[in-house]
């Protein structure tokens, strides 16, 4: 439960909420913990909150590692979405 998964910010909304994409899966999350965030940023997402901004490069390697270790599907399933892990990695490349 301590894992954080990289996500791409696709839109910002009122109330410190944002739409993110975790491999084509759209999800509403909170960005209340971030100082600054913009559309196009990659963030580390943990239990529905963006914790930290990360570089695209870091996002890519983390996603690849998580897919490889079989952690990605579990995380995405936890989020109440269904996704093929391969799709997640491809989309960010």
């Amino acid at each position: 439960m301590c894992l954080a998964i990289p996500a791409l910010v696709t839109a910002l909304h009122d109330g410190a909420m944002a739409s993110v994409s975790v491999g084509g899966i759209a999800k509403q999350v909170s960005v209340a913990l971030l100082e600054q965030v913009a559309v196009g940023d990659y963030v580390l997402l943990h239990v529905g909150y963006a914790l930290h901004r990360v570089s695209e490069e870091e996002a890519r390697r983390t996603l690849a590692m998580m897919a490889e270790a079989g952690l990605l599907q579990a995380e995405v399933a936890d989020m109440g979405a269904t996704a093929k892990s391969a799709g997640v990695v491809h989309e960010i490349r």
Partner: peptide, 11 residues
């Protein structure tokens, strides 16, 4: 949870 999971509870 540890320090990673606490801020979401505060929020």
């Amino acid at each position: 949870g540890f320090e990673t999971t606490t801020p979401p509870s505060a929020a």
